[in-house]
């Protein structure tokens, strides 16, 4: 004999499971199962051109340690990030503060700087390649007419990473600027009034006593998402340089793509993906931990 209350509880439990089922299913199919498959694949020698595969344990990871291309890709990614990140952080911060204090034309500046974000980077990359062309490119025309030596933006191993950083910076500055603007708008104006009363009227004091600490959560978010963006660099490389010249623009994700779909080493490519996943996870962890520490409300 089941009591009415117990029957109701059981019915509600069933309903609860039924209601979360679609979401759980989607998360499983889209995130969890692919991740598990990638991890499993990374323990095999699975290749797109062979039938069947063997379990080879950690062999792929061991190979990574001695793979020159892996080291090269890591180095390239790091160099690129070191150029890209400061630009992707401080330029938008400066622009946001400058635009914020504008009364007129504020929206004009916002739109102008945000335009690159709305365009398709793959299409814009082609425009950039035309601008950066070593012979007919406008950039080199400008340089030579100013009496400077021409630069082989995309063809020189020493320059190509900086050129790519320049293009991706152009595409991300507007986005980060809008994030900073939102963060600035959220700072209560009475805090600046209080700072003024307390004697902090110099712009440097205003920045370090109010703006910078109040912007901390936004800053963490911008820094972490930009780091992830830097680590994810792929489309511009795929379109403009394909890792050339001489592997000089072969960044981490592009190497992963090459190993998997050009050299058909799916197992090794999966292992690289797992490393990629681990790095992204670390960034996300930092963001979560810092976000809690820097929020005061």
């Amino acid at each position: 004999m089941i009591g009415g209350a117990e029957r109701l509880a059981r019915r509600q439990r069933r309903l609860a499971f039924a209601l979360v089922a679609p979401a759980v299913l989607l998360i499983l199919v889209i995130y969890v199962i692919p991740m598990v498959l990638v991890v499993l694949t990374s323990f095999t020698d699975y290749s797109l051109v062979s039938n069947g595969f063997d379990w080879i344990g950690l062999e792929n990871y061991r190979h990574m340690a001695e793979d020159e291309q892996f080291g090269n890709a890591l180095r390239n990614t790091l160099v690129y990030a070191l150029v890209f990140l400061p630009g992707a952080f401080f330029v938008p911060l400066f622009l946001a503060i400058a635009i914020q204090s504008q009364k007129r034309f504020r929206s004009v500046f916002e739109i102008v700087y945000f335009l690159p974000v709305t365009s398709t980077l793959t299409a814009m990359a082609l425009v950039w390649s035309a601008l950066m062309d070593s012979r007919q490119g406008i950039l080199n025309n400008v340089l030579t007419s100013a009496g400077l030596p021409a630069i082989n933006f995309l063809g020189s191993p020493d320059v190509v990473l900086y050129s790519l950083a320049g293009i991706t910076l152009w595409s991300i500055i507007g986005f980060n600027m809008v994030l900073f603007l939102a963060g600035l708008t959220a700072i209560p104006s009475s805090l600046y009034d209080a700072a003024e009363i307390d004697g902090a009227s110099h712009p440097v004091d205003r920045f370090f006593k109010v703006t910078w600490p109040m912007l901390a959560p936004t800053s963490v978010f911008v820094a972490v998402t930009s780091s992830i963006t830097a680590f994810k660099l792929f489309d511009v490389v795929a379109i403009l340089t394909q890792g050339k010249p001489a592997h000089a623009s072969e960044v981490f994700l592009y190497l992963t793509f090459l190993e998997g779909f050009e050299y058909f080493n799916m197992g090794y490519s999966a292992a690289l993906s797992v490393v990629f996943l681990g790095v992204i996870f670390l960034f996300a962890l930092v963001q979560t931990l810092l976000a809690d520490r820097t929020t005061h409300h």
Partner: peptide, 21 residues
């Protein structure tokens, strides 16, 4: 004169305390 030069103190409606300090 700036507020500092006038030597005024002010208490705001929302207190305007610095939340990070």
């Amino acid at each position: 004169a700036t507020p500092k030069e006038r030597g005024v103190a002010m208490v705001f409606q929302d207190y305007a305390l610095y939340p990070h300090m």
